[in-house]
Design a binder for these strands. Structure first.
Lengths: 170, 170
DNA sequence: AGGTAATGTGAATCCCGGTTCACTTCTTGG
DNA sequence: CCAAGAAGTGAACCGGGATTCACATTACCT
């Protein structure tokens, strides 16, 4: 809190005129930043295209934004945080999942995707994306990364699409 | 530490004859328990069957063990922990990923799976499994769960298989 | 201008639980 | 049976950092 205050150019006590505790301050910050990310992904999920195309766009958006701001993405996805912030992170992930669930439902309706529990599939996609990114994002990530960014993106998108759209045994 | 000591029937200081710090004690416990889980999954990954069958068995093992011991699984997968334990958790996840990567490689060799970066796919599978389980596992999970256990397992396994094995646009 | 409320200040407080350590008890080898 | 080392004890200590609060400053109204 001392550092935050100094950084903001105010005294420590001043923070407590605006936020009841460190945890709530951090949770609020998390909420705002996460909101921007959600907006970006939600935008990518819209449009008149097929569900598959939109899903591809969502995954690409997610990945590219994460790689463009690795530190932020790491904080949002994986960094150890106060329980209150962790709760916010859960909301954040569920919001992503909700967007994806709508998308999957669309795909099912269009018969582009086979019948499936859209909630479950959406959750799985969030986990898939988050976990693949934790490697490249984590602070002491090896650079150069194991895979070139392009291939990484392409393959991850392919995994997402296959998971929800393809038949099990071609 | 007081509680741990009392629970073990020893004095607080005694713990420090065996472990240099709380973090290392916890990390050691985590390591042992995680080791058992890894062993179980590794066993499921073996055998003479096709890669797809073995992958199915691994996913089922993972899911069933988690649901059978939800509190433990939650601790291993998602509960906020000391940084040292978090490091152990990363190892744990990478170990799972390594097992799965071998499996995926087998599948590629048998031409059961299309060419892909096995490491990336394996990581994705770990994330997929972990995230879908966080819902049902989290301490204040709604019961009855959203999906019956059987359907949950079946659909999650299907997601895993499709992600690595199917063609994108059937 | 004068008063009142709102906001800012930052050194001091306070809390909490991990850790320590002087002392006791047990174990082992000669 | 007796050192002497190993292991156990638990009350007290201690560090760190979030939080407080008595006071100063600013903003805003009549």
């Amino acid at each position: 809190m001392q550092i935050v205050a100094a950084d903001a150019g105010v005294a420590t006590g001043t923070i407590y005129r605006h936020f009841p505790s460190k945890a709530e301050l951090f949770a609020t910050v998390f909420q705002r930043v996460a909101g921007q990310e959600v907006d970006a992904v939600a935008a990518a999920a819209g449009g008149p295209d097929s569900a598959a195309i939109r899903l591809q766009r969502v995954a690409e958006t997610f990945i590219q934004r994460a790689l463009a701001a690795p530190r932020l993405a790491y904080a949002l996805l994986a960094e150890p945080v106060d329980p209150l912030v962790e709760a916010e992170r859960l909301v954040f992930r569920r919001t992503y999942a909700a967007i994806l669930a709508d998308l999957v439902d669309d795909g099912i309706r269009q018969a582009a995707f086979p019948p499936q529990s859209s909630d479950l599939s959406a959750t799985a996609l969030v986990g898939l994306l988050a976990e693949t990114l934790v490697g490249p994002l984590s602070p002491q990530a090896a650079d150069p990364p194991a895979l070139p960014v392009n291939q990484f993106t392409q393959e991850t998108v392919a995994l997402c699409l296959r998971a929800v759209s393809a038949r099990s045994h071609p």
